[in-house]
Amino acid sequence: MSNKTFRKWAAASLLSLSASTVAIADTFVFTAIPDEDETKLVERFRGVADYLSEQLGTEVRYIPVKSYAAAVSAFRNNQVQLAWFGGLSGVQARRLVEGSEALAQGVEDEAFQTYFIANTNTGIEPGDSLQSMADDLKDRTFTFGSKGSTSGRLMPEFHIREAFESAPEDVFSRVGFSGNHTRTLRLVEAGTYEVGALNFQVWEKELSDGNIDTDSVQVVWKTPPYPDYQWTIRGDVNERFGDGFKEKVKQALLNLDDPALLESFPRSGFIPASNDDYEPIRKTAESIGILD
């Protein structure tokens, strides 16, 4: 390529980079951990974006990401200012961004649960505790959800370690990470994995929508409740979007009462949350060594 073409190219690319920076400087951007099928996420959060945009009077944009870590990084890097995190990703994000705070959680998130599910071909019967099911569970194939998920990884791993006093790899013959809850459900339903652990809300919603073949898969154990999902906002939003902006976002979320939108989460409503609510999650994560 000649020199001239290169100079043109360089100028053009600089121009396009700066143009893009200007275009979205004043947009309030949020993201969410990709805990479910993408179509569902996009549908759900486009709705939230429209709602927030209307309530806040600023342009609001949702960007989909491919991993929990990408959601945390985008939040940390100030490329998004608000995020719908799980318990663990929220703790990670708030540790990394000083001044950030949990704004609101779903009504159901105060007492969230993980369901252990099993393919019916395995003959595993529901039990009261993991210990009591030890013989049934040992040497099965097992899948978590995403590596960074609270209900799909952190809590089930914690309970497995507590019950068997060894790492999941040593308990099960094969341990996988399906990527998200919907996929965990599908993989166990199809028999790819014999056992899996997933977010109870996803199970309940899919069940009520008639999307689960209950002859193939059933719940075999439920964890004790723990706090999970929450909206977390950066501490510096007021400087960028004006005084009281954080409060406005909080009120908008708490006031969200569009049944269709709430149904898509699925949550019955949002209630205030605080950073301290998630201390148990932090301690659990430290105890199993996925948080330094």
């Binding site: 390529m1 073409t5 043109k8 190219w9 053009a12 690319s13 396009s16 980079l17 143009a19 893009s20 920076t21 275009a23 979205i24 400087a25 951007v29 960007i63 985008a74 940390r76 890097n77 100030n78 490329q79 998004v80």
Partner: peptide, 21 residues
């Protein structure tokens, strides 16, 4: 040359870089 000049304009806008990061 046309492709090379035009391509940077079709990368999408993405999100702005924060250099502190």
């Amino acid at each position: 040359p046309a492709y090379v000049v035009a391509a940077p304009f079709f990368l999408g806008e993405g999100l702005p870089i924060v250099w502190g990061n």
